[in-house]
Design a protein around this nucleic acid. Structure first.
Length: 562
DNA sequence: GCCGTTTTCGGCCCGACTGTTTTCAGTCG
């Protein structure tokens, strides 16, 4: 699967074009890149099935970019990109604080070609000589380099399809008896360092040979008779381990982890005069469990623990006492509350989004385009919002057993007021509100004030963090939980891969305060509806039950509640 | 380079914040 590799190239083309002060194209390339990294399907398969026309159908991809994608799939390269990357170092703009103008100056005025040279130049204070550069800027760029260098984890949402693709290919081998993704990926951790795959088989060599020859492998790091590691072209490491079938359960348990969960289990085994390893549960030399995970937990006197809970964060005690939560299931959701359309910064139409949501098996879809007066992301002003309400009413007539909920994602202004007037909000089925600026302040009072608005339903991405990019703003969540509970408001788990906000830890706190949670994707095109599983995973990692999640309610009930 | 609310040509994200050159350039969301 080459989706991520291709997306990275398109992002880099955008950066270089921006350095050259090319108008509009950077935007187009970035939009296409975003769209491609969100795809669930292998871009090569899309091309194989539908050629250029199918590529052109991807939101944000048109005549020009689809040709470049085809070139990439057929030759492994994009000529234009190869040409561009010779003109400017592609890495510079990935450093926070370094934008197109700075990147250009570094290269043209100081002849700096890579990050190593940039570090040296910073040490020698060479940047100070440039117009507009001072002490602070120098310090900020240094910190930016540090951040960029330490940022080696991949986002769950973009890794899952790649891992499942590999899993699917391995499954076609007749030598593969059982197979599972394991490690942090199976625990659905928000970021992933590598992909771990576990296979049971009697002919491990054949499995490993096949694995190391997968078409996207860039480098074989290690290859033995039972395990192997490779690096894919998009730099993700994949580890495979092949074990005998009778040990599949215990190995899956072991390789799923996490480490301290495993240590705790082994201690329990010792107390019971048993031994637990990846090969099984043993009484003396006799294997007494290990072919299934359930069997392993049972033998240790534990109720089965879902992978998402395995953090040694109280799940083992809960399991011993039979007090594990009945977690919300991936199939429990009846709708999505927060998606965008081409009325604001999304790229699919209202009808396209609704059709896809219905195909997803949903009963409802909340369209919450940006609304306000700030004009960020082509916000809807009140006039256009009213017009969109009319349009949704019209589109709704085309559906049965499904309803588009009229909504908006309204900006929370600096004083905590909402950017759209109550008169308009009153007409909506669902009102979401978000902080989109002022991240450096303490935003507690601002959110508390917003929670007082009588038409508000949901606070979106309540902490504002962006994984690997931006820390959460200051906010006293305990006060937010309390007020949300009092005023009957919901807090969002935003499922977008780099948000996952609230986080698992926050969710656990919130539901212990009896706050209801809304899981939404914040989709900007039809392909992003799939992100919902990331949000559900966060909920599960936060011990949420079905009743804690409002979009497990059916259409009739949710309309009443809203 | 993409796309279509009215548009197949002509729009497309603008304001906050930071740091520095003290009046605005650059970055970010």
């Amino acid at each position: 699967m080459k989706n991520l590799e291709l997306a990275k190239i398109l992002y880099e083309i955008a950066d270089i074009l921006e350095i050259q002060d090319v108008q509009w194209k950077p935007r187009a390339y970035r939009k296409a890149a975003q769209s491609i990294e969100s795809l669930n399907e292998d871009i090569e398969i899309i091309y194989e099935k539908g050629r250029l026309k199918a590529l052109d159908n991807i939101p944000g991809v048109g005549k020009g970019i689809s040709k470049k994608i085809a070139e990439f799939i057929e030759t492994g390269k994009i000529k234009e990109y190869e040409k561009l990357r010779k003109k400017f170092p592609v890495e510079f703009m990935k450093i926070p604080e370094v934008g197109p103008k700075t990147a250009k100056k570094l290269y043209e005025k100081l002849k700096i070609k890579n990050i190593k040279q940039l570090k040296e130049a910073l040490k020698k204070h060479k940047l100070r000589k440039l117009y507009g550069f001072g002490e602070k800027k120098e310090k900020n760029i240094l910190e930016g380099i540090k951040f960029y260098g330490s940022n080696k984890r991949f986002l769950l949402g973009y890794i899952l399809p790649i891992a499942r693709d590999i899993e699917g290919k391995l499954k076609t081998l007749k030598e593969v008896k059982k197979i599972s993704i394991s490690g942090s990926l199976r625990r659905m951790k928000e970021t992933i360092r590598d992909i771990d795959i576990l296979v049971s088989s009697n002919s491990s060599r054949k499995v490993i040979d096949f694995f190391t020859k997968l078409d996207n492998v860039k480098k074989i790091i290690a290859k033995g008779s039972t395990k192997s590691s490779v690096r894919l072209k998009d730099n993700i490491q994949v580890d495979i381990r092949v074990i005998p079938d009778k040990s599949f359960g215990s190995a899956l348990q072991y390789f799923t982890g996490n480490k301290s969960h495993n240590i705790a289990l082994r201690k329990i085994a010792i107390r019971k005069d048993l031994k637990l390893s990846e090969y099984g549960v043993f009484k003396g030399k006799k294997q007494v469990a290990g072919s299934t995970e359930e069997g392993v937990y049972k033998k240790l006197g534990l109720k089965y623990i879902e992978p998402e809970l395995r953090t040694d964060g109280g799940e083992i005690q809960a399991s011993l006492k039979g007090k594990l939560p009945n977690l919300v299931k991936y199939s429990d959701l009846k709708g999505d509350f927060h998606v965008h359309t081409n009325w604001s910064d999304g790229s699919s139409s209202i009808e396209e989004m609704a059709k896809s949501a219905k195909k997803f098996g949903y009963q409802y879809l909340g369209i919450c385009d940006h609304a306000g007066r700030l004009k960020i992301a082509t916000c809807l002003d009140e006039k256009r919002l009213l017009k969109q309400i009319k349009e949704i009413e019209k589109v709704n007539k085309k559906f049965s057993n499904f309803e588009i909920l009229k909504g908006a994602e309204v900006d929370i202004l600096s004083d905590g007021k909402l950017a759209t007037s109550d008169k308009i909000l009153k007409k909506l089925d669902i009102v979401s509100a978000s902080i989109h600026f002022g991240f450096k302040k303490d935003n507690t009072d601002r959110i508390l004030k917003a929670l007082e608005n009588k038409y508000l339903n949901i606070i979106c991405h309540p902490t504002g963090r962006l994984i690997n990019q931006r820390n959460p703003y200051k906010v006293d969540l305990r006060k937010v939980y309390k007020k949300a509970k009092e005023n009957n408001k919901f807090l969002e788990i935003n499922s977008y891969p780099n948000r996952l906000d609230l986080s698992d830890v926050n969710v656990k706190e919130a539901i212990s305060e009896n706050v209801k949670i809304a899981i939404s994707t914040d989709s900007h095109n039809v392909n992003q509806l799939r992100f919902i599983e990331l949000g559900i995973a966060v909920a599960r990692r936060g011990w949420a039950r079905k009743k804690d999640i409002v979009n497990t309610y059916n259409l009739k009930d949710i309309k009443k509640i809203l």
